[in-house]
Design a protein around this nucleic acid. Structure first.
Length: 295
DNA sequence: AGTAAACTCCGGAAGC
DNA sequence: TGCTTCCGGAGTTTAC
């Protein structure tokens, strides 16, 4: 599923393929994918040039000529990519935009339709769903900013995943970062010692940047803007590995629900109670501690 | 007021 | 083969 690294890869490809390009004919089958301006995309998009392609959190932001802004959220199964016109559109393709002076098309496809497209040109009446918030991008926030976020009396996982607080953290990279920093997902953020919060801030940036370089993670659906899967799923240490041994201490990983989401942790490396500092096991065969799923 | 949990959307996958 | 259940990003609603 597309999270920040996957969206960043899509944006990098689209930036090169779309910048300066002008939209031609537009086709869209269903209206409920479009929000914001009540006018249909067939009316709003043709003849617009793409000025820029940016990202905030998991949100793609296209600035178009004439002051129209186009935001795309991929939700869980969304894909935004350029295809040759000769490629038959895959099922659940909701928008096809011809690119002028090329044989290519920009297409938006979204099987489950948790994603959407927002067309906004300022003062128009807003229809459909509200634009998903995207405040401070988690990859761009500095330590003082992150430290302020951590003052809240909330479960750390719920806090990190709250797009009103930090934009860009999703389930996969949240679990990976919490594991890397040795923090249990339901610990209260404000109670986490400062050195560990700092380790978390570093882990988040390190993991997200590594995932971007690896082209993101493909679990089931995600394909990049060149229609290729990511490779970072091979580097996952907890996500999707419940029951398998921890890569650090060999304790079986445990699945639980945190922040309403399926969550995988190492119960030994991510203790709920404040304990002695976690030290990295030198040999991958330390004693196994309890692997009791907590209730 | 701030937090948390349940519910909504949807369709594919997995399980019975 | 054909049900039912589960899952989740993010908004909304409801309840502490």
């Amino acid at each position: 599923m597309p999270e920040l690294p996957e969206v960043e890869n899509v944006v990098r490809v689209l930036r090169r393929e779309l910048k300066g390009v002008r939209f031609g004919r537009v086709r869209s089958a269903r209206r409920d994918v479009f929000h914001g301006d009540p006018r249909p995309p067939q009316e709003l998009l043709p003849r617009r040039a793409v000025h820029s392609v940016e990202r905030t959190g998991k949100r793609i932001e296209l600035a178009l000529s004439g002051g129209l802004r186009c935001y795309v959220h991929l939700g869980m199964t969304g894909q935004l990519a350029v295809f040759p016109r000769s490629d038959p559109p895959a099922p659940h393709t909701h928008l096809i935009v011809d690119l002028q002076n090329t044989d290519a098309q920009l297409r938006f496809r979204d099987v489950r339709r948790f994603g959407g497209i927002w067309l906004l040109d300022g003062a128009e009446r807003h229809v459909g769903r509200p634009l998903p918030v995207a405040r401070d991008d988690v990859l761009k926030i500095d330590w003082p900013g992150f430290r302020r976020v951590m003052q809240r009396d909330r479960q750390i996982k719920a806090l990190l995943m709250d797009q009103h607080v930090l934009a860009g953290m999703g389930n996969i990279y949240c679990d990976e970062a919490l594991f890397a920093a040795g923090i249990h997902p339901v610990r209260r953020a404000a109670a986490i010692p400062e050195d560990r919060a700092r380790a978390l801030h570093r882990a988040i940036r390190r993991i997200l940047n590594a995932a971007i370089r690896a082209g993101g993670s493909t679990i089931r659906d995600y394909l990049g803007a060149r229609n290729e899967p990511g490779r970072f799923q091979k580097a996952h240490r907890v996500y999707g590995r419940a029951g398998k041994p921890c890569t650090r201490c060999r304790t079986p990983l445990v699945r639980l629900i945190a922040a309403g989401r399926g969550t995988t942790i190492c119960p030994a490396c991510q203790p709920l109670r404040t304990g002695p500092a976690i030290r990295r096991a030198k040999s991958p065969r330390t004693r196994r501690s309890r692997a009791v799923p907590r209730g």
